[in-house]
Amino acid sequence: MAQIAFAPDVFTWPADEPRLIGGRCTSCGTVTFPVWPSCARCGSTEVEQHLLPRRGTLWTFTTQEFLPKEPYAGGETAETFRPYGIGLVQLDDEVRVEARLTESDPATLRIGMEMELVVVPFRTDDDGTEVMVYAFAPVEGS
């Protein structure tokens, strides 16, 4: 079955160990996700691609338990929609990234737990193509 990334230049993929493609200001070193057109801290337009660490800790989280309005493109209906987790994962001391979580039950999530980047199916199109998105999964035993 064909799999495609939901957007280009957001993560390295296909890859055994995918990485998020962030940006780094060559002037002040600020790291962003994704690549930002210019630096949110100093305004410099000199930014370069910077691959982000694959692991980090869960800084905060919530669950999305109702079907978002457009422009959401998950393809579900109110009947087929299943809640998903969403959180902010701190990657070393570089940046906090907002991402889907593979867990949607708050009881399985804990602020401070170790998380790892994964690429998971987000939607299946009519022709069977799986559209893939980045997400974070709890690291076993963390």
Partner: peptide
């Protein structure tokens, strides 16, 4: 793509 993947919601920010 921020909205397409279901992140563009003020409510989830306030919850986080």
């Amino acid at each position: 793509w921020y909205g397409e993947i279901g992140h563009f919601l003020t409510t989830k920010f306030f919850a986080m």
